[in-house]
Design a protein around this nucleic acid. Structure first.
Lengths: 152, 152
DNA sequence: TATTGTTATACTCTATAACTATA
DNA sequence: TATAGTTATAGAGTATAACAATA
């Protein structure tokens, strides 16, 4: 039996390490074109075409200035476009270019291939566990806003 | 049944998000004294008293210059000490100060409390899954050097 | 007056290149 | 010559503060 605290300890050790693996894979291997935050932002705009800066910031959990700079880099490199929103001129409408879609897909493929290869040594039963565990984490951290403190 | 690729996809979505939660908790809540890499380095030296810079770099998966600067910050703030190693004068011996131990313990406690609270909504069965899943990930990413490519 | 976004500034993380000192 | 570590330099990620434009 594991206590919530045991699980918390486990997360605190394993998550940063896994994150570092993903980050260095993205940086060093085939597709150093995108950092992890860039990848996430690009993927979000790809799923939500016409998104505003605030929507990206909300999704990423970043401040507006941080998001503005992040998006700037992606626009400079022609992975994203920025247009005015005619219905509310304070807002912008972001969109992924075809160039951006290619980069996004390449980056996703390379990283998935890397992870998939690593996971080839894991038994089916363990993989089910990982999936169920990730689902629980997702539910708690990504969707459960009921217990989340409101931070101004 | 989940394929390795399904699991990889899941990791690629959930791990960065969870990492961001941990990072922003450490930054914004009670103990903004340590960033995640600083916490990890300090915890490593605490477990391996007298460690050299190279040992920290290996553990963290960072280059020597990056590690040198990271450690510098911790020394400047009197969380770590640096001594010469008399047996090999090229090496240094790192140690945690009592001040560093206090900070480390506070930071660990605050983050664990935060995670533990989040996990209070997870059923025991799901927690077992998370633990088993983390164990599998740990085995694959942290210990399995057999299939890891050697990157110079 | 409140919301959306940008610019200015600053700090940490991280890398590569070039260096010093020791083995 | 090889190894351990530092310094110089640079780019990305992130924040807060101050601002402009629009609602």
């Amino acid at each position: 039996m594991s206590s919530p605290e045991d699980v918390a300890n486990e997360l605190l050790e394993v998550v940063p390490f896994t994150m570092k693996e993903i980050r260095s894979q993205m940086r060093s291997q085939r597709t150093p074109e995108l950092t992890v935050p860039q990848f996430r932002a690009l993927a979000f705009v790809n799923r939500h075409s016409g998104a505003s800066l605030s929507q990206v910031a909300d999704h990423m959990g970043l401040t507006l200035p941080s998001t503005s700079r992040l998006i700037d880099h992606l626009i400079t490199r022609r992975f994203l476009t920025r247009e005015d929103n005619p219905y509310d001129r304070r807002r912008i409408k972001l969109g992924v270019t075809s160039r951006g879609q290619v980069i996004l897909e390449n980056s996703r493929r390379a990283t998935l291939n890397y992870l998939t290869k690593k996971l080839s040594n894991v038994s089916p039963a363990e993989m089910e566990c990982i999936v169920k565990g990730m689902y629980a984490i997702r539910r708690v951290f990504m969707y459960n806003t009921a217990t989340a403190e409101v931070v101004k």
